[in-house]
Amino acid sequence: MKSLIFRTASTYLLPLMLLFSIFILLRGHYLPGGGFVGGLMAAIAFLIHSFAFGLKETKEIIKINPGYLMPIGLVLAVGSGMVPLFVNDPFLTGLWFEEPFRFIGMVGSALFFDIGVYLVVIGATLTIMFSITESV
């Protein structure tokens, strides 16, 4: 789309929406939000950018093929589930650090699980969207 307003806006929207999606991801455990929604938002951010500037530019910004995010996310999610096995707890038991971290708050295996979901959602959504866009 060749609208100047849209283009200018999307330049600013992209980082803002990405930041917001991470914010949503991190607050998920206490307030509305979470990996799934966060992932969708991040994907939308990139999509809007691709509307304004075309797919090629967006891909250049992302640098890596978004498809790679899927296995990375899966490994992270499964891995966070496996961690409890090492202390003889069942698969996917939540483990937490005692003290909260600065800015982030409590950190535990569930957070990494959620980050995994976040990455998978971004990867899957972008892969679907990009391959459809390229084919029509």
Partner: peptide
């Protein structure tokens, strides 16, 4: 059990994590 206040998200990542 899961140290989260957002029940929906806790269900997603912990209770029904599988």
């Amino acid at each position: 059990l899961a140290k989260g206040r957002n029940v929906v998200n806790v269900i997603l990542v912990d209770f029904r994590g599988f």
